[in-house]
């Protein structure tokens, strides 16, 4: 599997990662070699095998519906890059 520079740009966009244009070819090569490694999976026929998402095959535990959290806004917003009037700020979102 070989990725072209346009593929890298598309993936980087989907992942919201800025990649310098000068590095695109390098990423294309690295990612392609990783995909070659990954393609080894196709050596094995796994048809009919149930996928395993959690190693223990366990089931979800449920929490009682109780309010256990208190307001910690000041503490949480102390580490935020841009906060005003209790709101996190980002460049204007246009809908």
């Amino acid at each position: 599997m070989s990725l072209k520079p346009t593929d890298v740009r598309n993936i980087a966009h989907l992942a919201r990662l800025h990649i310098d244009e000068a590095d695109i070819d390098r990423y294309a090569a690295d990612l392609s070699s990783i995909l070659d490694l990954v393609d080894q999976m196709n050596q094995i026929d796994s048809s009919g095998v149930a996928p395993l998402s959690n190693p223990l095959d366990a089931t979800q535990r449920l929490r009682d519906d109780e309010v256990t959290e208190t307001d910690q806004r000041d503490k949480f917003q102390k580490i935020a890059p841009d906060v005003e009037q209790g709101l996190y700020r980002v460049p204007k979102v246009i809908e």
Binding site: D82, E84, Q85, L87, Y88, R89, V90, P91, K92, V93
Partner: peptide
């Protein structure tokens, strides 16, 4: 709420 920004 803000001129050039959105609040979350």
């Amino acid at each position: 709420q803000f001129p050039d920004q959105s609040g979350i």
